[in-house]
Amino acid sequence: MRVLQDAWRYLTDASSWTGDGGMLALLAEQLLLTAGALGIAMLVGLPLALWLGHLGRGGFLAINITNVGRAVPTFALLALLVTADPWGWTGDLFPGTATLGPFGRGGAATLVALALFALPPIITNAYTAVREVPTEVREAARGMGMSGWQVFRRAEWPLALPLVASGVRLALVQVWATATIAALVAGPGLGRVITDGFFRTQYGKGIAGAIVVAAVALVLELLAAWVQRAVTPPGAPGAASPGRSRRVSPDRNTVAP
């Protein structure tokens, strides 16, 4: 239990928060990485998945991308992406551990890796969301003379939004967790505090870092849940009902690493 006291001391010591490499700077760095990666993944994944869902094609891809993503350890993939240019194809262009502005050491490679990890939940959920819009709704919209775009914009999108949002929420939690692991490999972010503590046998420090990471994860999840509820119209399929969702929802079958 002495380690808990050490952790408490580390958390309450102002000098562990401030300054270069202090926890505040690392926290900002990791939040920035998370937001950046999530942004990239949404920009790439959402249009693709929504479009495929609208066309009703590519379901195989949308489902399997998640299954494959689950089997590959994030740790290993991060290691491959971040430590070096895996096969030398890019010459010296591959960023490796180079520093990228505010994203810190290994910034570019970490950003790419995190965006890749955010894609499966975003794509799978957005695709499923559009596919699950009842056929009658779609046909009624078409019968009213709406064009393909109008059907999507005015019928499918509003109905799909809650599930799309839950995919983004899941991706957010996942990216935050993966960003922490990135510190095991490359350097940026709060995971550094954990790995430093553990690899240098200052367990108090490691545990202090873990407490901060876990707390921020919970805060992010609550914020995302709040946003999700805000975009869900009352009575919509994804709206929170007293008994909660009565099924193993498709948005919950990936584990945050």
Partner: peptide, 29 residues
């Protein structure tokens, strides 16, 4: 007990949110 259901699911989902790399250190003590 349906009233326990949301508690059980809520707590386990909350746990799920904690990154593994942070969960292990929290168990170490």
């Amino acid at each position: 007990y349906p009233r326990l259901e949301s508690t059980i699911l809520g707590v386990s989902t909350g746990l799920y949110t904690v990154p593994s790399i942070a969960l292990f250190p929290l168990l170490v003590p």
